[in-house]
Simulated assay, not measured.
Amino acid sequence: MRFKTLTAASMTALILASGTAMADTWRYAFEEALDEVQGVFAQKFKEEVEANSDHEVQLFPFGTLGESDNILEQTQAGILQFVNQSPGFTGALIPEAQVFFVPYLLPEDEDQLFRFFRESETINSIFPELYADQGLELLTMYPEGEVMVTSDRPIGSPADFDDVKVRVMTNPLLVSSYQAFGATPTPLPWGEVYGGLQTGIVDAQENPAFFIESTRMYEVQDHITRMGHNNFTTALMANKEFFDGLPEEDQELIRNATAAAFDHILEYQQGLTESSLEAIMEAKPSITVTTLSEEERAPFRDTAEQVEATFLEIGGPRAQEVLDQMKADLDAAAE
């Protein structure tokens, strides 16, 4: 008994004296598969952490721990240390994050878009405070790709959305956006979407091209429409109590791994949309891929002001501040 006590005390003294943190296993869940964008980001994060420390990162792709709301709750409870999740699912918790669903707000130009995500004051200063209020440390936000609409009928104007049930995430502003487009938005958990499209519970859905390809949504849809209305945004978060309790060197380790994964995922995405569309058309030659002209986009673009007004109503106490700063950030990125 005396020998064990002395050994434990000696070990503690050695660790404190050297300043070395004990190796831990950190659990990280995300909304996609390992070979999709969030999975590629997560693997790079894991690689960086494990190459520069004795810690291990366990990755949990979509479905292994439940739906998106489940993994967020598990992170807030401290069961998971990290979660990668779209503001589409955190909108009810952090209403200001719904700003990413105002249509035609984010730029289509890739360089400008990437510059915005790197330098945005909204992302780097305002959102961390809002996420912290919910027990989350916001580590980064990044884009995943141009959002496209898949449907069982061609979409060329708001009139074409009449009576079309579009599957959307459980996000009030996304619902408002598709209502403004003339569609019937239908919130549905992702695990039910393929079957819903197959059986007619929903007629359409939106996602980036890589996700449409990897989940084989094109098998149960006949048309893809590039409306240019948005780019899918996601966020990496940590449980704040966990993060704040780490030694400074581990916090720096996580920030560095996040930065490396951010750079990696932007590089990975270059050309991804076009290669994914090519793969879809090769797998299903009958599918149509239509890019709407500026003239065709105009009536959709005209709904942005209406959706902005809705955001200011439901986007939380700092909605106006977030919208104003985001527009200033986007202007700076365009210069």
Rank of each mutant, 00 (worst) to 15 (best):
E146M: 11
V147E: 06
V149W: 04
S151A: 09
D152S: 11
D152A: 07
R153Y: 05
I155V: 13
I155L: 14
P158L: 11
D160M: 07
D160T: 02
D160E: 08
F161W: 08
D162F: 08
D163L: 12
V164I: 12
K165L: 13
K165R: 15
V166W: 02
R167Q: 14
N171Y: 10
L174M: 14
Y178A: 12
A180L: 11
F181C: 09
G182C: 11
G182N: 06
A183Y: 03
T186V: 13
P187G: 15
L188A: 12
L188W: 03
P189Y: 10
E192C: 11
V193Y: 05
G195Q: 14
G195F: 04
L197R: 00
L197I: 06
T199A: 14
G200P: 05
I201Q: 10
I201V: 15
V202C: 13
D203Y: 00
A204V: 09
E206G: 05
P208W: 02
P208V: 01
F210Y: 13
F211I: 13
E213M: 07
E213H: 10
S214P: 00
T215N: 04
R216P: 05
R216W: 02
R216K: 15
E219L: 01
R226I: 07
N230H: 04
N230C: 05
N231Q: 12
F232W: 09
T233V: 15
T233W: 04
A235H: 04
M237N: 11
N239H: 11
D244K: 07
L246N: 01
E248H: 10
N256M: 13
A257T: 03
